[in-house]
Amino acid sequence: MLHIKCPWCGWRDESEFGYGGEAHIERPKDPDSVSDAEWADYLFFGSNRRGDFRERWVHSAGCRRWFNAVRDTTTYEFKAFYRMGEEPPGGEQ
């Protein structure tokens, strides 16, 4: 069981949360103007990063807010939690 720190509610068990995949993926501003390949890249291809990975979680059994976390995909260790709209810690990935 992972322990996850909701930016509002504090530490709770993983069973209270839902997973939202990779964070900071930007939707093309004008979907009609991108090629099928670019759209497919946006939609289907994540970075599949080994190591620190920025991802979205939602505290679905609590305050129902979305937030971001940095988790090491090899050890499952959480490195940081931060709110939507906040700068991710650690700079560029």
Binding site: C9, R12, S15, E16, A61, G62, C63
Partner: peptide, 9 residues
């Protein structure tokens, strides 16, 4: 707190 009791929110 909002949490779970058994499977109930």
């Amino acid at each position: 707190a909002q949490t779970l009791l058994g499977h109930a929110g």
